[in-house]
Design a protein around this nucleic acid. Sequence first.
DNA 1: AATGTTACTTGCAAAATGCAAGTAATAATT
DNA 2: AATTATTACTTGCATTTTGCAAGTAACATT
Lengths: 149, 149
Amino acid sequence: MPKTPRNKSGPKRRSECPLNASVEMLGDRWSLLIIRDMMLRGFRSYKEFLECYERIATNILADRLRRLTTNGIIQASPDPTDGRKLIYSLTAKGIDLAPVLTEMVLWAAAHENTGNQALVRQMQSDKGKFLAGIRERWENGGGSRSGNE
Amino acid sequence: MPKTPRNKSGPKRRSECPLNASVEMLGDRWSLLIIRDMMLRGFRSYKEFLECYERIATNILADRLRRLTTNGIIQASPDPTDGRKLIYSLTAKGIDLAPVLTEMVLWAAAHENTGNQALVRQMQSDKGKFLAGIRERWENGGGSRSGNE
DNA sequence: AATGTTACTTGCAAAATGCAAGTAATAATT
DNA sequence: AATTATTACTTGCATTTTGCAAGTAACATT
């Protein structure tokens, strides 16, 4: 029987829709969680991520941090008090993901039984203020640990 | 030498943060693209998805449609004019993903060279109106392609 | 110099994925 | 009624990706 391949027809213009770019950078199991924990929990070091995600493999974590850095979402700088450490922080591009995360959290909270109702209520009651707070904390001081957990 | 595992310490309360639920349902390469194309391009059938995503495998597409259905984001109903077909449509939960998609598109548009500037400008100029339009189209008529019905 | 910590890399088994090739259920055509 | 085509999948298998234990280089501390 002759071959009758099914997937050869569509034109598939990459990045025709902007969402393709987002999915390429964030469409996996870990990237958004890493960004969330930098943004909301103030995670800065490899060790914090490794100990937090019980199931993430060390090489996967290293790869995701590298990819997020390559994509300009986070940046790594040496710790001045300890030459061995790298301090990871969000770039402006990374901070701009706050609205995406917020909408995802609100969506899940509306349709699932999720935890951390305090955070959800804070987002719901004044979304703009919540986002402004995140931006402010990151723009001066480079992202201190917030009260959200 | 004794084992010294690295990943056994963190408590890792699942769904402590609502984002975990979102990532479990949407954190892969295809799910959000499927939702986007149902929402913005009016895709309804297995065949449309298969021909559009040049690189998606048939079993992966079937799996993602099944998972999205299981998660209550889309639903499948038989086509009354052709008993062989299934018509996929967004549920209320799926429609509620519009703000997430919108923020992702706007984020990518702000930081990458993405296509479809018309869509982006429409989102930017009046986000609320854009979202209302999507909801309206889906709430009466089950999501027509454009001005149908 | 010995020991500990950090931020990785390596090796390998297991799981997920991609792709060609089926297949059952229908529909259209002859 | 038989033939052909289409849809919406499933199956089998090779390739790729991931998870985990173990190792390591570069410091830092004692």
